[in-house]
Amino acid sequence: MTGTGRSGSARSGNARSGGALSTAAGRRCAALVLGVLLVFALVPVYWMVSSAFKTNAEIAALAPTLYPHHPTLEQFRAVLAGGALLRSLGYSAVIAGLTTIVVVVLGSCAAFAVSHLTFRGSKGFLIGILFTQLLPQSAVLVPVYLLWNSLGLTGTGAGLGLVYLALYLPVAVWMLTGFFRGIPLDLTEAGRIDGASNVRILWSIVLPIARPALAATAIYTALTCWSEFLLALVLLTSNTTTVTVQLAGLIGRHDTNLGQLMAAATIATVPPVVAFFALQRYFVAGLTIGTVKG
């Protein structure tokens, strides 16, 4: 009981009251759980990173080594040679970054409209945009390519970004709507009574409260763009392509170049993790509805 009292008073800090486990015992329990989960999550990641530092012969060994016995940078050197990988990283970063910004902005507007302006047919709109996700990608590939080709958008990063925008904006609307609904209507109504425009209400009332949701949506969008493969494959050519397509090129017809694949993938995993760290604080410091009200 003392613990809950403490959590109640610690609301402005890191240990906000939402964590019902904020007792010392609770935290030990949480640490244990997280430890197990970290092992589960990171063993494959460790495998990737450690393989990247192994020689081809060591990777092929039938008694796999748990760490590189003869650490080498040869795989990294090989994948970095020529600069194609780094170029594709930059390309992916630009496409993912710009798409994410546009998706979050447009998604917030639409989610705000659906959740707080509740226009006629808003439910139909919500269900309708969800149906954009139903067709499997193999079925979308040909028609989207045909459409984009007739619009002259194939072979360009902008064209790819537009497909991503089209595909992921509906998801962003869904995610954001879910969170925006948690924001009481009273709050936005109050703004309206004060004479604020819808844009103003969205900007200064809704968005600040919804920062964790915006961060989650942004992370989702950026990561999905970053790891998308099939559309990038068909819409771009190998000279200017995204990092996932570049990586797939290391899998040959008869042979997977495992060492180089692992090295390239290790490099390709760093930017999104760093980007996530950058957005991380919004999870921690994001205002909660409770504090706003109080």
Partner: peptide, 22 residues
């Protein structure tokens, strides 16, 4: 210009592009 596509995805890419006449 060379468009080098991984074997696994080669047919998918070519079928899609050829179908569009591109």
């Amino acid at each position: 210009t060379v468009d080098a596509v991984a074997f696994d995805s080669y047919d998918t890419k070519l079928t899609t592009a050829l179908r569009a006449g591109n």
